[in-house]
Design a protein around this nucleic acid. Structure first.
Length: 295
DNA sequence: GTGTTTGTTATCAA
DNA sequence: CTTGATAACAAACA
């Protein structure tokens, strides 16, 4: 499940690898994956370069360099999407592939795969694959006004920026009857949290996911605010969490998995009190917590 | 065949 | 209008 730290890891890596490379061809294998008519989608990219790679919440935003109107490629990975960048296969004199290829090149092994829904081919022979087992993810070309609409209507503050203040957290919780779990998953209130980091943040703040958001006391809001900031920052340092499908742009797993305290640890002991972590459905999602530590 | 997995949107109700 | 809860989507696996 790519959430903010995973998408940010991909963004940073891709910014270093694909910016400035001319796109030679666009291949769409699953027609519904590209949300524009295929001809428009391809014409928007072929012969151009990416100028910037940004991120808003879990949404990747590639600015296409162009002389006319600004266009952007949006990519959302949803649950099982992957973006894997493979540099050009190095050839030896006889035209055979070298043995002992680097990991970056190994990332392109076996691609396109059964789950590849689209890929971009760059002029230098490198390729960017969009793989998505569940087919929830998408690619979409939008204009600048469309992009601004999407950002304004869909995303609250980024957890690592100043706009995500304790004051903001208190304001969005005030009077709200919905569970704190559901509230933290709402992208319009805070951008980028998903099921893993919500559970981890609530454990660190010692708050029960069932609690109505409006019932949190000032001290608890403070704990939650710093828990969210630190969990997200640490998860980025560790290059995200691999639970099932996530890999970074070179096909590597995230290292935060070993830092998880509750997510996926139902039945195991709570790192704080030693009693069993439970899993139940809250806000329609599998929710992991310690009923003794989290009140 | 059944239940489960989750990011996001649609839909309906209050 | 806002808020909240739930279904739906998609595909694979136990």
């Amino acid at each position: 499940m790519p959430e903010l730290p995973e998408v940010e890891t991909i963004r940073r890596d891709l910014a270093a690898s694909i910016i400035g490379r001319e796109i030679a061809a666009v291949h769409i294998l699953a027609s519904k994956t590209a949300k524009n008519p295929a001809a428009f989608f391809k014409a928007s990219l072929v012969g151009r370069k990416f100028k910037t790679v940004r991120r808003r919440g879990k949404l990747l935003i590639f600015q296409v360099a162009s002389k006319g109107d600004k266009r952007f490629l949006l990519i959302h990975l949803k649950m099982t999407g992957q973006l894997v960048y493979a540099s050009r296969k190095r050839k030896i004199a006889g035209g055979h592939s070298l043995k002992g290829i680097s990991s970056a090149e190994a990332a392109g092994q076996g691609l396109p795969s059964r789950h590849t829904r689209a890929w971009l081919e760059f002029r230098d022979g490198s390729r960017l694959f969009f793989n998505d087992l569940r087919r929830f993810g998408y690619l979409k070309i939008v204009s600048e006004p469309e992009l601004e609409d999407i950002i304004a209507s869909s995303y609250g503050p980024e957890p690592l920026q100043e706009e995500f203040s304790l004051l903001h957290l208190a304001a969005i919780c005030r009077q709200r009857k919905t569970s704190i779990k559901a509230l933290l998953l709402n992208q319009k209130l805070i951008a980028g949290l998903g099921n893993i980091y919500v559970d981890e943040s609530l454990w660190r703040a010692r708050i029960n996911p069932h609690r109505p958001a409006g019932s949190l006391r000032k001290k608890e809001l403070g704990s939650l605010h710093s828990a969210i900031s630190s969990v997200i920052a640490r998860a980025i340092e560790y290059r995200g969490t691999t639970f099932s499908d996530y890999v970074d742009s070179r096909g590597r797993r995230g290292n935060f998995s070993r830092q998880l305290k509750v997510y996926g640890r139902q039945g195991q002991s709570c790192p704080s009190c030693g009693r069993a972590i439970i899993k139940e459905k809250v806000a329609g999602r599998g929710t992991h917590y310690c009923p003794f530590c989290q009140k």
